[in-house]
C-alpha cells in the first residue's frame, strides 16, 4: 500500500497542500479529482519525490517503508512511476532508445510494438523517430504512456493522461488503465475530467490543496459535477476553503 500521512507542502511561506492523507491499495484504481490549480499535480510530484517537492510536514510510506527521503530513482525502483502532464522532449533519442532506457530494459521488439499499438501508434512509423520537438503533444503523450506501461509499475501516477490527446481517445485511456491494473499495477489518475475519474474505483476530491471528499468515484463525480462547477473555491487560500 502507498500511503500519504498528513502531508503539508509550502513554497516560500505559501501553503500549497494541507494535511493530505491518502491510501492507495494494490488492486484498485484511483483518481485524484479537482479543478485546475487545486494542487493535484503537486501531490503527484511530492509522491514521486521531484526536486523542490519535499513535504514541509508529513510522511510517505510504501508497504510500511518510509520513502519520504528517498530520491526519485529509488522510488521508481520500488515500483512508483509518473506520467508528466507535459512530458519532456529528448533530442536525438529514438523512441526505441527511450522506451528501452538506452537498452537497460531488456524488451523484445514485439513487446514494444504491442504497447505502441495499445496507445494508438504504429510501431513501423514511430520506433525510429526521435522523442523531440518533431512530435506533436499528443504523439509525445502516447509515447510516454507506452513508456510507463513497459515499466509494469506497481503504482502509476498518470497526471492528466488525456490532455493533448483528442477526446475520441478516452477508450485508449481506459485500455491503458486496465492494462496497468491487469499487470498488477495500481493506476492513480490525476484529472479534472469527470469521465476519466469514472474509469476508477475510488477518488479523492481536491480543492485548494486540501482533500474535500474521498469515496467511490461515482459518488464523488456526482458531487464534483453538481457542486464544484458552480463553486468559487478555486484558487482561494487553503484557510478560506477550510472556513467554508
Amino acid at each position: 500500500m502507498l500511503e500519504l500521512r498528513d502531508i503539508d507542502f509550502e513554497v516560500e511561506g505559501k501553503r500549497i497542500l494541507r494535511k493530505i492523507t491518502m491510501k492507495f491499495e494494490e488492486g484498485k484504481k484511483y483518481s485524484i479529482l479537482g479543478m485546475n490549480g487545486a494542487g493535484k499535480s503537486t501531490i503527484a510530484y511530492v509522491i514521486m519525490g521531484l526536486e523542490g517537492y519535499k513535504p514541509t510536514a508529513g510522511r510517505i510510506y510504501l508497504n510500511g517503508e518510509d520513502i519520504t527521503d528517498l530520491p526519485v530513482s529509488e522510488r521508481a525502483k520500488r515500483g512508483i512511476t509518473l506520467l508528466w502532464q507535459e512530458p519532456a522532449r529528448f533530442r536525438g533519442l529514438t523512441v526505441k532508445d527511450y522506451l528501452t532506457l538506452g537498452g537497460k530494459l531488456n524488451l523484445k521488439k514485439d513487446e514494444i510494438a504491442q504497447i505502441l499499438e495499445l496507445v494508438g501508434l504504429s510501431p513501423l512509423l514511430y520506433m525510429n523517430r526521435t522523442v523531440d520537438e518533431g512530435l506533436s503533444g499528443g504523439e509525445r503523450k502516447r509515447i510516454e504512456l507506452a513508456s510507463v506501461l513497459l515499466l509494469e509499475p506497481r503504482y502509476a501516477i498518470l497526471d492528466e493522461p488525456d490532455s493533448g490527446i483528442d477526446i475520441m481517445s478516452l477508450d485508449m485511456i481506459k485500455n491503458v488503465i486496465d492494462w496497468i491494473s491487469d499487470h498488477g499495477g495500481t493506476p492513480i489518475l490525476i484529472t479534472h475530467r469527470e469521465e476519466v475519474a469514472l474509469e476508477t474505483d475510488e477518488s479523492y476530491l481536491i480543492c485548494s490543496g486540501i482533500i474535500l471528499k474521498r469515496g467511490k468515484s461515482k459518488d464523488l463525480v456526482e458531487y464534483y459535477r453538481t457542486t464544484c462547477d458552480k463553486c468559487d473555491h478555486i484558487n482561494l487560500p487553503v484557510e478560506k476553503v477550510e472556513r467554508k
Binding site: P71, T81, G102
Partner: peptide
C-alpha cells in the same frame, strides 16, 4: 529517474541523444 535510472545513467542517456 522516475523510470528507475540513476542520475548518472539518466545523464549519460541524455548526452548520448545529444
Amino acid at each position: 529517474m522516475a523510470k528507475g535510472l540513476s542520475e548518472e545513467e539518466a545523464t549519460n542517456l541524455i548526452i548520448k541523444g545529444i
